[in-house]
Design a protein around this nucleic acid. Structure first.
Length: 571
DNA sequence: GCCGTTTTCGGCCCGACTGTTTTCAGTCG
């Protein structure tokens, strides 16, 4: 049972308690625990195994009560309290909460009045017009719930960061052209989350109405969802929802802070404000009725006695405590990246040539790049035969003699075969500058087998980077089963760095894995895995994810100058 | 159910909107 499964159970308990009408603070304790546990950097089952119930209660938000429930879960595979709740209330009611406009109160009401047990039942009742006659309900409620059901059925998933950011940037450019003074995107996009629900944009403008008018009449707008005096929502032709809020300059910082979130971070900030006898809202920090900070985010944090906290850290994962203790990390920045160590050419499944990659990398002021085409057995990607790879080594040796200011390293993305051996022999691998080991086959292996497979490859001493460690493709393919905590520990021990693939489809290591890697002393390598020249630009997404994982440049091998990098690769 | 440099009891985040109401509960972000 992994952490996110555990978090899910806690959330379901919390939601069932909500429907049941339990005490709100008890509910919050479960929901908060769900959030904390599902993103906890260490494996909870292992933590319990090693440190027992004490290990669990050390986690903030987990007291004796919840720790005992977790203990029961680890020992019996289930929690009696949860099982009892499910007997009391049908589990299907949880589905209803995901419908816009239906919360716990309505879910319970529908269950008691009409015997509705799940989404299907609700849909049937709405369509039969049974809701509007209930007390407190009306035509409008029924209409909204039907819309909510249809919206949910479309299964609109969160878009990838790499799809949202360019749209947000384009909207901001257009808003500025239309007269907006300041314009920034907020929300999970600003925090650099791997997927984003919608795009939030905040602007300051002399005439609010003008900004709203411009926003709702852009070429890319397919539908205007809402349009008022200070805010508007649109749907773009790509099906992306974007919300605009127009503000006056003196409240911009507080609003930016509020709309950047996360919700958890905001709640913690407000709790801190209360402790200090202050009040925080989207309009500013208040002492009594007097507003003492609101113009900039820095000002808001300062008023709360905190240094500025970078958006990527604002997830309620210990950043406020770190800020209070002066222990915030100095996050890695795009400018710290000195090279890209994972790229493909037309020799395997890429599209460009080495020369084109070199020239693109020079424009980015990189000190080095690594060419890493696929290995022989990966036929679908036209992997290089040993002979071709030898030829490639010589080609790059010759090339380096004529290059100034940049060094091309000859690597390979070598398949880790199902038994954990590598796809080229040791002799050939030794002639490379380095090898990335990646899993491209037999994704369906059992967790312990996959973990062993990868760790065996680490122990060969022939790979320096473990490529896209979980194999996931966002919105397309689940990660394969692998014990990342064991893998991270092994990587730290064997001197293998873990790749953070900057491809917007991958972004794994995840932010949470990055943090665990940092804690355990494993190095990370942020690569684009480019298959085309333009993909070198994806590096920024990798850096955002690394920042979410609290990484500093010292944790990232491609922030090293060439000499230091070569030392790492030679170990 | 959690938590404590004002508390081991008594607190626990803030504001807006909506639809249904004559003063507010429920939902959302």
């Amino acid at each position: 049972m992994n952490n996110s499964d555990i978090g899910k159970i806690m959330r379901e308990i919390g939601e069932l308690l909500e429907i049941k009408g339990e005490m709100i603070f008890k509910i919050r304790a479960y929901l908060k625990a769900a959030e904390i546990l599902s993103t906890y950097p260490e494996d909870l089952a292992k933590l319990y195994e090693e440190k027992g119930i004490k290990g669990l209660t050390q986690i903030p938000g987990i007291g004796e009560g919840l720790a005992k429930k977790l203990e029961e879960l680890f020992n019996n595979g289930k929690i009696g309290y949860f099982e009892d709740l499910k007997k009391e209330l049908p589990e299907g009611l949880l589905e209803l909460l995901s419908v816009q406009g239906v919360g716990p109160k309505k879910a319970k009401f529908f269950f008691e009045e009409l015997g509705i047990k799940d989404l299907k039942g609700l849909e049937k009742a709405v369509k039969a017009g049974k809701l509007k006659d209930l007390k407190g309900m009306g035509e409008k409620t029924e209409e909204n719930i039907l819309k909510g059901i249809e919206y949910r059925k479309k299964g609109i998933e969160r878009m990838r960061l790499g799809d949202a950011l360019p749209v947000a940037e384009a909207l901001i450019k257009e808003l500025k052209a239309a007269g907006a003074k300041e314009a920034l995107y907020a929300g999970s996009l600003r925090r650099g989350r791997e997927t984003v629900g919608d795009i939030d944009i905040l602007v300051t403008a002399k005439e609010h109405g003008k900004a709203i008018e411009a926003f709702t009449s852009f070429e890319r707008v397919s539908r205007v969802l809402a349009k008022g005096g200070t805010k508007a929502s649109i749907l773009t032709k790509d099906g992306i929802q974007a919300d605009l809020r127009v503000l006056s300059p003196d409240e911009f910082g507080a609003a930016l802070n509020y709309f950047t979130g996360s919700k958890e971070h905001n709640v913690l900030l407000r709790e801190l404000a209360i402790k200090k006898g202050l009040k925080l809202s989207e309009y500013g920090v208040f002492k009594g009725n007097k507003r003492i900070a609101s113009k900039t985010e820095e000002e808001v944090y300062r008023a709360l006695g905190l240094p500025y906290i970078e958006p990527e850290l604002r997830e309620g994962r210990g950043e406020i405590e770190a800020a209070l203790n002066g222990k915030l990390p100095r996050l890695v920045e795009p400018g710290d990246i000195r090279g890209d160590l994972h790229m493909h050419t037309a020799a395997s499944d890429g599209t460009g040539s080495i020369a084109e990659l070199v020239s693109a990398a020079k424009k980015k002021s990189y000190e080095y790049i690594g060419i890493t085409d696929h290995s022989a057995s990966l036929k679908v990607a036209r992997g290089l035969s040993p002979e071709l790879l030898l030829k490639r080594i010589k080609e790059i040796e010759a090339l380096n003699k004529n290059l100034n200011g940049i060094r091309v390293l000859c690597g390979s993305e070598v398949d880790i075969k199902p038994d954990g051996t590598l796809d080229y022999d040791d002799g050939l691998l030794s002639r490379l500058d380095y090898a990335i080991g990646s899993v491209h086959t037999s994704f369906g292996m059992k967790k312990d087998e996959m973990t062993k497979r990868v760790i065996r490859a680490f122990k060969s001493g022939k790979i320096k980077i473990f490529g896209h460690p979980t194999g996931r493709l966002l919105n397309e393919r689940e990660p394969y089963e692998i014990d990342m905590n064991e893998v991270i520990a092994a990587a730290a021990g064997e001197g293998v760095s873990l790749e953070l693939s900057a491809s917007p489809y991958r972004l794994d290591l995840t932010d949470i894995n990055c943090r665990a890697a940092k804690d355990k002393g494993a190095k990370v390598c942020i690569d684009t895995d480019s298959h085309a020249i333009g993909e070198l630009e994806n590096m920024k997404y990798g850096v955002m994810t690394a920042r979410r994982g609290w990484l500093e440049k010292e944790n990232v091998i491609n922030c090293l100058p060439l000499k230091g990098l070569l030392r790492f690769l030679a170990r």
